[in-house]
């Protein structure tokens, strides 16, 4: 889906350019699209692991084998085994599931919340904007992880509270971007025209203004998706996400980090690389979409 969006915007972005600029733009866009392809390939690998991983994982990721613990990578266990004798490769494959469900859901929630809040703030301005704006600023004075911390501890850890807390925190961040975009749009003639036609506020906001600020919202969504992966992995690492023994990259790293000092690096390194590659993939996609949209 992201490909077609990017393609549409790409063709739209270069139509009105002069021919010399067009060639340069095309050259640059080619480079960008390669970025996009690389990112999409990485993401696809992990989506395949999450959806079909059960079909090709070498072992049951939950199966313990206490006679075969802390084994380094070998032909039988490509990524070695952990401190309970579980196959690390299988856990890395299946560990993609929760993060690929929680992070996108949290980002969608955050984007919807942020869009509504930003539209209201930018459209009504005045007291609504001033009061909600200060509250948002106060929340943003804390790192997202700490906000998440406070609320997850208060309401209890679960997948749902992870989605709600991250979605809420990101909604506040996204509302700032949407608000800025709305403030620019509301001065334009089509908004005045809608007002003169006697359209209601809700109609003007969601039918007139919203389609015109989709570009920054899409960019914000992809950027936030990367951060959502970051946040989910971090909170899982801290023990506020998926419960053991369910395979999860962040939680597995936390469980095995204590064995690093003993030299058992394979138990944590592969999950760490999995997180890094997923985030890099999403950033590559976001980066290519952003550069194409901004052109």
């Amino acid at each position: 889906m992201a490909t077609t969006e990017a393609d549409d915007l790409r063709s739209g972005g270069v139509l009105d350019a002069s021919s010399k600029r067009l060639r340069r733009e095309q050259l640059r866009l080619l480079v960008r699209s390669r970025t996009f392809k690389a990112g999409a390939a990485i993401l696809l690998v992990w989506i395949v692991c999450a959806v079909f991983g059960g079909l090709f994982r070498p072992y049951n990721p939950l199966a313990q084998n206490l006679l075969n613990i802390n084994q380094p990578p070998s032909a039988r266990h490509l990524f070695g085994t952990d401190n309970l004798g579980r196959d690390v490769l299988s856990r890395v494959i299946i560990g993609s599931r929760d993060i690929l469900v929680i992070a996108p859901l949290a980002t969608v929630l955050g984007t919807v919340l942020g869009t509504v809040l930003g539209l209201l703030q930018g459209f009504y301005r005045g007291a609504v904007d001033a009061i909600t704006g200060r509250v948002v600023e106060a929340f943003l004075a804390l790192p997202v992880v700490i906000v998440a911390f406070l609320f997850i501890v208060a309401v209890g850890p679960s997948e749902a509270s992870l989605i709600i807390v991250i979605g809420f925190a990101f909604g506040l961040v996204i509302s700032r971007t949407v608000r800025t975009a709305v403030l620019q749009e509301r001065e334009l003639d089509y908004v005045a025209a809608a007002r003169l036609r006697g359209e209601g506020a809700v109609h003007t906001m969601f039918v007139e203004v919203l389609p015109n600020i989709l570009a920054p919202i899409i960019v914000e969504f992809t950027v936030r998706l990367g951060y959502a992966i970051f946040a989910v992995a971090t909170l899982s690492f801290l023990g506020f996400g998926v419960r053991p023994p369910t395979p999860d990259w962040g939680a597995d790293i936390a469980a095995n980090a204590q064995y690093l000092a003993a030299g058992y690096w394979w138990e944590t390194l592969f999950s760490a690389l999995a997180i890094a590659s997923l985030i890099t993939g999403i950033n590559l996609i976001g980066d290519s979409i952003e550069s194409v949209i901004i052109q």
Binding site: G226, Y227, F230, A233, T234, F237, G250, I253, A257, L260, A261, G263, W265, T268, L269, A272, L273, I275, A276, I279, T280, N283, D287
Partner: peptide, 29 residues
Amino acid sequence: LSLATVPEFVSGIVLIVIFAIELEWLPVD
């Protein structure tokens, strides 16, 4: 950009594996 978006504990693990375990230059804790 890549370094900024990788969680600290991920890069931390990689650093520990390289500098504390393989090279033994610096302590793990």
